[in-house]
């Protein structure tokens, strides 16, 4: 869906999506890193379970909700990636204690 520009010379950052390692770049938001990863990163809504991907990328639509380092319902488009970050794609309602 998206590709990186050739001129991008930022440092690599390694994060994990549902346990699988992917490469991101320093300054990427979690949502941007997920969208360019080529993986199926669709979440399922808490209401009907419908699949969604980020829509606005500016913090207003909440379609980028994702579990980051064990904490559910984070806005992936507002959180920059960090080395070793653990991302989990959320399916449905937020789980208890996460």
């Amino acid at each position: 869906m998206f590709k990186r520009s050739d001129q991008d010379s930022r440092q690599s950052v390694h994060i994990f999506v549902d346990g699988a390692a992917i490469e991101a770049r320093e300054g990427d938001t979690v949502s941007a890193a997920l969208l360019v990863s080529g993986r199926d990163v669709r979440r399922a809504t808490a209401v009907s379970g419908a699949p969604r991907l980020p829509y606005c990328m500016m913090g207003v639509c909440f379609d980028c909700l994702v579990t980051i380092d064990g904490i559910g319902n984070r806005q992936g488009c507002l959180v920059p990636v960090a080395e070793g970050m653990q991302i989990e794609i959320q399916k449905g309602k937020r789980e208890i204690g996460r």
Binding site: D28, A33, R52, P54, Y55
Partner: peptide, 19 residues
């Protein structure tokens, strides 16, 4: 999934060089 705003694409373009 696959429908986004133009602004979203522009955000990714500016901040991550994604197209």
């Amino acid at each position: 999934p696959g429908v986004m705003t133009a602004g979203a694409a522009q955000t990714m373009l500016k901040s991550s060089g994604l197209v």
